[in-house]
């Protein structure tokens, strides 16, 4: 028995020491990423007056650089494709925790889907995995059962399969980022793209409580930290969902502002500014960003 226990212990200690060699791959993981925004946040390098938070509608439809030029306030886009409001809450919380508070937050709303169960909007854990060497991130992964508690002690538990590749990650065209975090799209529109006039009626019973809670948490965070919160509805080649807006207004506090694109502007009905029904090319983003700048300048 003694021999068995001695061998088990020795084996365990040796494994503990040897597996530390995996640190090389873990610390190398962030360098392979094209999108370094979360790392900048964690490093406390995101000192901006205005931040844009949202899903791909925020990333593609708003130019942070243009907004900065037009408002005279420093600006950065922290919108992530396919991200849900729960992820947006995480981004804002992390930003406030590690950086100077922004003055204004533009929260881009996924009109009609923001609080519903929607398989295309997730908590973007894939953005967290390369940064697991930050204990703050690893704790978040553990909290969400994406990593085991043992990852605090063993690198072999902390590491991911992709970490073994030393090549920089491949970047798809839609994910190429500008210097201010926006992902402005270029290219030809789809000829078959048509104006969508039918909108599915909004059912409040389909809303998910945890998404509503995250939304509320964002409001509270902004209120507590004296941040002006703006909700942004970006244009789409479709009818505007008024049902959702009515519901949304019930959730908004008096000091918060809603920016809805100019629904009477005919340019928003031209299909050549759209890549698809909800994402605009850079020429469309330029028009819409000007609208936001105007709104911010008039509310300074």
């Amino acid at each position: 028995m003694k021999l068995f226990l001695r061998h088990i212990l020795l084996f365990g200690v040796l494994f503990f020491v040897v597996e530390k060699g995996l640190y090389f791959f873990i610390q190398n993981a962030p360098q392979k990423e094209h999108d370094k925004r979360l790392e900048l946040i964690l490093e406390g390098k995101m000192k901006k007056d205005i931040v844009i938070i949202g899903s791909s509608r925020g990333a593609n439809n708003i130019s942070a650089k243009q907004l900065e030029d037009e408002t005279g306030m420093s600006c950065y886009n922290l919108s992530y494709r396919g991200s849900s409001v729960v992820f947006h809450e995480f981004i804002l919380k992390t930003l406030i925790l590690h950086n100077n508070k922004p003055k204004k937050v533009l929260l881009v709303i996924d009109n009609g889907y923001q609080f519903l169960k929607n398989h295309s909007l997730h908590f973007r854990f894939d953005r967290l995995f390369p940064l697991k060497n930050y204990s703050y991130i690893n704790d978040k992964l553990i909290e969400n059962n994406k990593k085991s508690y043992i990852s605090n002690f063993l690198y072999s538990v902390k590491i991911n399969r992709e970490d073994f590749s030393l090549k920089p990650k491949r970047v798809y065209e839609v994910n190429v980022m500008t210097s201010h975090g926006s992902k402005l799209l270029s290219g030809k529109n789809n000829e078959k793209l048509d104006y969508k006039s039918e909108i599915k009626s909004y059912d409040i019973n389909d809303e998910e409580l945890h998404k509503l809670n995250s939304f509320k948490a964002i409001q509270e965070m902004c209120s507590k930290n004296d941040i002006n919160l703006y909700f942004v509805f970006t244009p789409g080649l479709m009818s505007f969902d008024n049902d959702f807006l009515t519901r949304f207004k019930e959730l908004v506090n008096a000091d918060e502002k809603i920016i809805v694109y100019d629904t009477l502007n005919k340019r928003y009905k031209e299909k050549n500014i759209y890549r698809d029904h909800t994402h605009m090319f850079s020429n469309g983003a330029e028009i819409f960003t000007s609208e936001i700048s105007e709104f911010i300048n008039s509310n300074k």
Binding site: L14, L22, N145, K146, K147, S156
Partner: peptide, 16 residues
Amino acid sequence: YMIIIAIIFVFSSDTQ
């Protein structure tokens, strides 16, 4: 055995 253990840890899925 250490390699097998390391592979088990590394390849373990994100969720149980």
